[in-house]
Design a protein around this nucleic acid. Sequence first.
DNA 1: TCGAATTAGATGACGCGTAAACTAAACTCG
DNA 2: CGAGTTTAGTTTACGCGTCATCTAATTCGA
Lengths: 161, 161
Amino acid sequence: MSRSGLQKELKKKSAFESLEQEVTLAILRTNDQLQIRFARLFREFGLTTSQYNVLRILRGEGKPLPILEIAERTVTVVPGITGLIDRLEQAGHVKRERCLEDRRVIYVALTDQGKRTLASLDKPVVALHAKVLARLAPSELKELVRLLEKARAAMSEESAD
Amino acid sequence: MSRSGLQKELKKKSAFESLEQEVTLAILRTNDQLQIRFARLFREFGLTTSQYNVLRILRGEGKPLPILEIAERTVTVVPGITGLIDRLEQAGHVKRERCLEDRRVIYVALTDQGKRTLASLDKPVVALHAKVLARLAPSELKELVRLLEKARAAMSEESAD
DNA sequence: TCGAATTAGATGACGCGTAAACTAAACTCG
DNA sequence: CGAGTTTAGTTTACGCGTCATCTAATTCGA
């Protein structure tokens, strides 16, 4: 690295253009760090974050759900859910069941293997949640939630203007 | 990113397993909402968020940067940057310049078109930053930054254990 | 009843993040 | 000098989000 020595100090931008931008970047970076850590955990169990979320939704519901129901509850948009379910099915975590009354509908059900994988992740997930935020006091966590939800509430109003 | 992420929240179970999990989810959802809005803006100008970030880095530096320098400053991991630069080059926003002293190095430089596109985005970007967080008082914004940075600081310590 | 609209879901194309393997140029050190 | 190593960057492969388009089943309206 012949020349990168002096470039390094320039790397840190000291001045933000606005406080709002600073917040946006802080949220973005914090989210990235969280995602990385959870994705790493899920990968140890052969799952991606999206796949884990789908399994969680199915377990939470306690019964099979139509594919579009699942898509609705994730950030995933409709076309993406198909392949996601494909891979979960291929891995044996879920199975598709065609609805008899309305043959357009396809139910997705957790398999026993899916339930086992999910169960084995429960403790590590809770532990990771606690670990990544261990330095914040409960009062700070509550304040964080409050501020973030206030921000989001403002955004959803704004989108209807 | 989905267009309908926020209506779904009503459907969410009200009971969280832990306060930490609630924070994680709040960060996640807020980030999603921010991403959606900015991505939408960038797309109007023919850019993705990643592409915009690269252009911003180049402008911020004020001079051409080696590809790996750019990758280092984004969340993008090395192999992903190649295609990203490819597309930016194809769209005429940047150009590649091989370094003469070290022929392994390829500099990426903003073109005039890239500068123009970036300039035309400046006002809308600032406006959107202000808009999405308009409901939060400056003291709240500062507190949000403080809490998020505290969380991230804890995470980066934890990762070295 | 027949044709139009609607709905569930799949498909294909593209952008991007991630990991692994690879090429080419430069460096190191005996 | 020459073999091994490091470094810059690309390629390939896969998962996923997004969009546009498609098919098949259902429903609705004249």
